[in-house]
Structures are given as C-alpha cells and as structure tokens.
Write a protein that binds this DNA or RNA. Structure first.
Length: 287
DNA sequence: GTCCAGGCGTCAA
DNA sequence: TTGACGCATGGA
C-alpha cells in the first residue's frame, strides 16, 4: 500500500527546519542524507533545504502542514520580539526567527516529556526510540520503516522492570502510574479544550509531572503559548540576562508570562535554543 | 572519575 | 511554604 509522496515547499525566511527540530521540542527525528526524517503518530516525512526553500516530502501533506505550523505568521511574532526591552531576547529572536512551535500529538508529548526530566536530549531520544522499537506498531512507508509510539494499552502492560531495562531509570515508575491513571488515550487529546490553568493543574496532579514538564506539555503538546517552561537553562537566562531574583520556578514562569503574554512560548523557545548554542560555541572556542 | 542533564517526590523545619 | 536531598543513567 505505497501511496504517492507529496511535496510541500516553504520559503526559508521564517521557517528553518534544523532550528525547529533541534531546539528541544521534538525527540522523534533524525538526520538522513542532506535532510531530516520526522516521525509523528503513524506518519513520517523527509525534510531538506533546497535553495531558498524547505522541501517536505510525505504521503500526509495536510497533516505535516499543520504539524510544522506553517499557517501561522511567524514574521509577526519575530517583529514583536525585537521590540521588547531585553537585548538577550532580541538577539535570540534574530538568531532563531526560523523556529516554529510544532503541533505534536499531546498523548505522545505527555509521556515523552516525563522522560525528559533531569536528563539530556541525546539520551531522551535514545530511550524513546528504544521504547518505540520494542513496543510500538511497525509502520511501513516509502521513506523508511519506523515504529509508532506505543498505545496506552501497551504502556499499561509494561512493567517497571521492563522500563528500567530500557534505561528509564526512576521514570519507569512514573510511566506506570500515569498510564494507569487514564482509561482511554483520547482523554489526553480531549484535555485540549481546557484553559491553561485547568490543564496545568490536571497535569501536575500526575505522578512525575511537575511545573517544568507541565509547561512543556502545554506548549509542545497543546500549543498553549501562554506557558513558559523553566529548566536549568532558562533559570540561567532569568538570572544572567533578565537580572531576576525570584527563586520559585512557578513564580518565574508566571513572571515571564505576565511580561510576554501570548508570545511567551515562542520567546521562550528562541531564548532556550540561543542560550544552548552560545554555550556550545563557548566550549568549542576553548578546545 | 566527575559533573550534569529541558526536575520531581519526599520529608524535615 | 520553603529548602535540602536522593534519584537512575549515560553524555561530555
């Protein structure tokens, strides 16, 4: 059942595929040849740059047009960032203006970001791909065969020991507890109708989800942009580049949301990515 | 070997 | 309410 590969073409000005994928919002992608393979639900695409355009090849063009958030005016967001009164934000926006916030599956985001806590990105990706290969449905496609993220029913059947065997560490307990606290996978999708506050409190009531992970799920799983994840990197930014003195992560997050409103999530992502890039450059410079 | 990672739960004070 | 601590694991 091979279907036709369709092609989406996007102007590169305010869409950069590498920055969008590498800015820490997605774990299910990898480099191949001159581009990137991206997996979501039971769908896959291959994206690469050619001249002034980004080309996305897929049998599900409508899905990935929305997935990459191509309908939104990112130039507007960028323009609103560069008139803010903070030089670090302005530099971040100039550097990362091609970042889009993806529209990912909220069920997958919820579980994947539980793995992210106190963990590094390469390792998060590795754990997720092991989980999918071992327990996910195999999907065939013209781009390459891949494995779907395991269903809720499947997750319920995985023991803590099996999670440990995949490198989950103590997060295995959380997967066990959270998967058993839902009856149907759709319950997680359906929470999209809640407002930020209600959704946030539902999420942090789950074992293993605190304010940081909840904010990531709000932003990356539900596209609620009035959210602002505070991790170790954003804490550095808050202290070093905004002169912040609050200690409580929840309060710091709220402080940024009060400042940036509906742009919070986008600006957060510009800055997170930029800070990590600068750090890497610094390390490269020392070598 | 040591430090740290897109933190959180627990338990004292 | 806040602060300290332990937690599994592997990347750098």
């Amino acid at each position: 059942m091979t279907e036709m590969l369709n092609t989406i073409k996007v102007k590169k000005g305010f869409f950069n595929i590498r920055d969008t994928l590498e800015c820490g919002q997605i774990f299910r992608y990898f480099q191949k040849d001159n581009g990137f393979v991206v997996i979501s639900e039971d769908k896959i695409c291959f994206a690469y740059e050619e001249g002034e355009e980004t080309i996305i090849e897929t049998t599900h063009p409508e899905y990935f047009r929305h997935f990459f958030d191509l309908e939104r005016d990112y130039e507007k967001i960028y323009r609103e960032a560069i008139v803010e009164d903070n030089v670090f934000l302005i530099n971040s926006a100039k550097s990362g203006k091609g970042i889009h916030i993806l529209n990912q599956n909220s069920y997958e985001m919820l579980f994947e970001f539980v793995i992210s806590q106190n963990n590094n990105i390469p390792r998060i990706k590795k754990i997720i791909s092991t989980l999918c290969e071992r327990y996910g449905e195999k999907i065939h496609s013209n781009i390459c065969d891949f494995y779907r993220f395991p269903s809720l029913e499947t997750l319920k059947g995985i023991s803590v020991e099996e999670y440990m065997g995949m490198g989950f560490g103590y997060r295995g307990e959380y997967f066990n507890a959270i998967s058993n606290s839902y009856k149907r996978e759709e319950e997680i999708e359906e929470m999209a109708s809640l407002d930020e506050e209600a959704l946030f409190s539902k999420l942090i009531s789950l074992k293993g989800i605190g304010p940081k992970v909840a904010n990531c799920i709000l932003l990356f799983g539900y596209h609620k942009t009035r959210s602002f994840p505070i991790d170790t990197w954003m804490m550095k930014i808050y202290q070093q580049d905004f002169g912040g003195e609050l200690k409580d992560n929840k309060k710091i997050s709220q402080w940024f949301i009060d400042k940036f409103g509906d742009n919070s999530g986008y600006f957060q992502q510009y800055m997170f990515y930029y800070k990590r890039q600068k750090e890497r450059e610094l390390i490269e410079g020392i070598k």
